[in-house]
Amino acid sequence: MSFLPSQQKPAIAVVIPSYRVRNHILAVLGQIGSEVTAIYVVDDACPEDTGRFVKEHVTDPRVNVLWNDQNLGVGGATLAGMKQAAADGADVIVKIDGDGQMDPALIPSFVGVILIGEADYAKGNRFFDPEGVASMPLGRLIGNAGLSFLAKMSTGYWHSFDPTNGFFAIHASLVGLLPLEKISRRFFFESDLLFRLNVLTARVVDVPMHSHYADEVSNMKPHREIPRFALAHLRNFGKRIFYNYFIRNFSIASLELVLGLALLLFGVVYGLSKWGTSVPATAGTVMIAALPIIVATQLLLAFINYDIQSVPRSTLHLRLKTSVQPMRALRHRDSMKHQHESSPSEPRDSGQV
């Protein structure tokens, strides 16, 4: 069996979740190049009836309109489009927003790194170019920078930045591996998706990009979402560490984490218990409190360094291609052999009437 890449043109699908983007959606669709084979506009119970508007004004045969019966958020709409695109046979799925902030001319850049086997998931990074950062509104700049540092910790992709960027491409073979029903449906969608990809050990790369900010209206309320983001990042961090270092694997880093936390807890509790007493602390008492904290700090830093170096570096969809296809071939062979052995044998002609 050959595992050489197919010469057939790859099927590239674009998913556009649509909610209050009626004023921009036609311009976005008009800029999508011929390299894309299918476009899915997902009307997320939009009060502007964007799906019907697209149906009435767009004649591009690549455009398919999907409707959600109720508003599921940007994540829910995107996942609906991704599932349909994967079911229709897409090789790579690209997600862009319908408000015109993302340049469809960059789609080949996102798709290219996946098709050449350099990544399973390519996402935009608006912080790569200083000029692009200068064009970003100050509030978004501060908020995204802060959330990026939290996301590095919770997702395990320490090399990646701008986790809330909604411009991404993913190899379609990963859609069936992701627990789609568990991924956040709202504004935490992109960060939660990265966390799930890390659990799968998928390789993620950043693609430099600029965003265009004009008269589009953001539906996110920062004062409500930032506390939710912080709690969600903390929860995902705990899940990732527990799964990667105690369930899936147990390494020297696991010991460093356990011993580091134990020594830190002992040093802090013992030190506080001796704080403020009428009897001055002796040098020995100080050392008993300080030394565990110092050693714990070194152990925890070593653990963080190990975690940073453990970012997935091999491409998952290529590993799947070289392992799943032979498995399917073997299962098919065994199934055919079993059917042949279990079928009743043909009666032999005995020559008697």
Rank of each mutant, 00 (worst) to 15 (best):
Q7D: 09
Q7C: 10
K9C: 10
K9V: 13
A11R: 03
I16F: 03
V21G: 08
V21Y: 07
I25L: 15
L26C: 12
L29I: 07
S34K: 04
T37Q: 11
D43V: 06
D44R: 02
C46D: 14
C46K: 01
D49L: 14
G51L: 10
V54S: 13
K55C: 14
K55W: 07
H57R: 15
P61F: 12
D69Y: 05
L72F: 08
G75N: 09
G76Y: 01
G76S: 09
T78L: 05
A80N: 08
M82L: 13
K83E: 15
A85R: 00
G89P: 04
V92T: 06
I93K: 01
A105M: 11
I107W: 06
S109E: 14
V113S: 03
V113F: 01
I114E: 02
L115V: 12
G117W: 06
A119W: 05
N125F: 06
R126P: 01
F128R: 00
D129E: 09
P130V: 09
G139H: 03
G143M: 13
G143N: 08
G143V: 08
A145K: 04
F149C: 06
K152V: 10
M153G: 04
H159F: 09
F167Y: 12
F168G: 05
S173Q: 12
L177H: 03
L177M: 11
L180R: 01
K182D: 15
S184C: 15
R185A: 15
E190T: 05
L193H: 02
N198Q: 06
L200M: 05
T201P: 07
T201K: 14
A202E: 03
R203L: 15
V204Q: 11
P208W: 10
S218D: 14
P222V: 12
R224G: 13
E225N: 08
E225L: 08
R228K: 14
L234V: 13
L234M: 15
N236V: 14
I241T: 15
I241M: 15
N244P: 05
Y245T: 06
F246C: 10
I247H: 02
I247N: 04
S251T: 14
L263I: 11
F266E: 06
S273I: 05
K274C: 07
K274R: 06
P280F: 05
A290M: 14
L291A: 13
V295P: 00
A296H: 02
A296T: 02
L301R: 00
Q309Y: 08
S314K: 00
L316H: 01
Q325T: 07
L330R: 00
R331S: 07
H332W: 07
D334M: 03
S335C: 08
M336K: 01
K337V: 02
K337Q: 03
K337N: 06
H340T: 04
S343W: 09
G351E: 06
